[in-house]
């Protein structure tokens, strides 16, 4: 199992993601700098959280136009699983790899707290470790996590089962439409989510609810490899 983390200047949850992948996969991920134009062979690409390029202009907007994005797009086209968390989700929507857009939180403030997520589709590459409609805990930490898609797109992603995670039990922290916390692309290999599963993967964190996302995709990769 080879995993890859993309690093932009301003990425700051990359260390959290390196630590989580190392613990869950038993091997350290390879790190790819934003100026690279190719990504070495890999089973999973993760775009971590942070403030890429300071999130100046618009969250994720500059990163979405960086050299490494074409390489990510190529790998995604080949079917490699790609996962964007927080700023990574913002980058994936800005790059057009995922539908919709992220607006400022409805409360207009940065929010860091634990929320509840409902697994809206347990039949994706990233969610098979959970059962359908299972409610899990997960921390969030963001300023621009208010997911929005215009009516037709929203209808489509809902109909196609592309909504993977929803904020549950009235914990929607940002005003996201339909309580959407995480979505997957039509092909089913690119996931974007605002919450931080990498911060809830060991006893030390007070729970392991976030682990299932990584275990799902690792399990899928191992099955394909076998």
């Amino acid at each position: 199992m080879t995993t890859t983390i993309i690093q932009f200047p301003g990425s700051n949850r990359d260390a959290d993601m390196i630590s989580a992948l190392t613990k869950i996969c038993d091997s350290a991920p390879q790190l790819v700098w934003h100026t690279e134009t190719e990504i070495p062979s890999t089973d999973l690409i993760v775009i971590p959280g942070g403030f890429s390029y300071g999130d100046y202009l618009r969250s994720g907007a500059i990163a979405a136009r960086s050299p490494v994005m074409d390489a990510i797009r190529n790998r995604a086209d080949q079917g490699v699983p790609v996962m964007g968390v927080c700023n990574g989700f913002q980058i994936l929507t800005e790059a057009g790899l995922l539908p919709g857009a992220m607006m400022r939180n409805s409360g207009l403030k940065f929010v860091c707290r634990e929320v509840k997520l409902q697994v809206a589709n347990a039949n994706t590459l990233f969610s098979t470790a959970y059962f359908e409609n299972q409610v899990i805990r997960c921390p969030i930490a963001h300023h621009d996590g208010n997911f929005f898609a215009e009516a037709n797109t929203l209808k489509r992603i809902e109909a196609e089962g592309q909504v993977v995670f929803r904020y549950a039990e009235n914990t929607n922290p940002n005003g996201s439409i339909n309580d959407i916390a995480g979505i997957i692309n039509k092909q089913g290999n690119v996931l974007g989510m605002m919450p931080h599963p990498e911060n809830l993967i060991e006893d030390f964190h007070g729970g392991k609810d976030g682990r299932g996302i990584f275990e799902s995709v690792i399990g899928a990769v191992r099955i394909i490899a076998a």
Binding site: A15, C112, A141
Partner: peptide, 14 residues
């Protein structure tokens, strides 16, 4: 106040 601060980043907060 403190929910406006990221208290979890680095994954080491107890």
């Amino acid at each position: 106040v403190w929910e406006q601060y990221d208290s979890l980043i680095q994954a080491n907060t107890l």
